[in-house]
Amino acid sequence: MSKRSFRTRPPHSADLPCPCGRPTVYGRCCGRLHEGSAKAATAEDLMRSRYSAFAVGDEGYLLRSWHPDTRPSGVDLDPRTEWVRLEILGTGAGTPFHNEGTVEFLAVFREGGREGELREHSRFLRHGGAWAYLDALDG
């Protein structure tokens, strides 16, 4: 799907549950990171906020939270993809006291009435004092 055919999703209400799966509302969870009023304290926080950005269709946040060494010029978000659930499978380093970390996750999505899943072991680095998504580990 080309970027030209992308439909903007309606804004995700701050009072709805956060897509990242934490037991709080979007406005007090990932929504704060998306709007820029807070920064991710850990690599896992950044990964969860990026998942939520896919779920709410926030291409700008995805690009801003991507490390400049690997950042693409755009993200082709498909409005037909519904992100259903996120499971964190493991983390490595990535605390407020680290400069790099990893997060392994499973993201469940639905397209055309069928469920699928994306499993990734992502790498994160600090850049300019903030966590940034670098890439996915092979294997």
Rank of each mutant, 00 (worst) to 15 (best):
G129S: 06
G94V: 04
Y133G: 10
E35K: 06
L106T: 14
R71S: 04
D58Y: 03
E100L: 11
R7Y: 01
S122P: 08
R7N: 10
E100S: 15
A14V: 11
A107Y: 01
H67F: 04
F6T: 14
E44W: 02
G129Y: 05
F124M: 05
K39P: 09
R22S: 13
R64L: 09
L16R: 14
R28N: 13
R71Q: 08
P96Q: 06
W66I: 07
P79V: 11
A55M: 02
F105D: 07
H127D: 11
L46P: 03
A43V: 06
S65Y: 02
R28C: 09
G36L: 10
F109Y: 14
A43L: 05
T8W: 03
A53G: 05
D76K: 15
G92N: 12
S65W: 00
G128Q: 10
S5D: 09
R32Y: 06
A55H: 02
D45K: 09
V84P: 08
R114D: 12
T102S: 15
P68T: 05
R85H: 10
H12S: 05
H121A: 14
D76Q: 14
C29V: 06
T95Q: 09
R114H: 15
F124R: 02
L46N: 00
A41L: 11
V25P: 00
E87Y: 09
S122R: 06
H121Q: 13
G94L: 07
S73F: 10
L46G: 00
Y26C: 03
P72G: 06
A107G: 03
G101L: 02
K3F: 08
V108A: 07
P10E: 15
I88H: 10
T42C: 10
G27W: 01
G101C: 02
F6L: 12
G21Q: 03
K3I: 14
W131I: 04
G112N: 08
T8Y: 09
R48V: 03
T102G: 10
F54G: 06
G90V: 07
Y51M: 02
V56A: 02
R28D: 12
P17C: 06
G139M: 06
R110Y: 03
P19D: 04
D78Y: 04
H34F: 02
F6C: 09
K39A: 15
H98D: 15
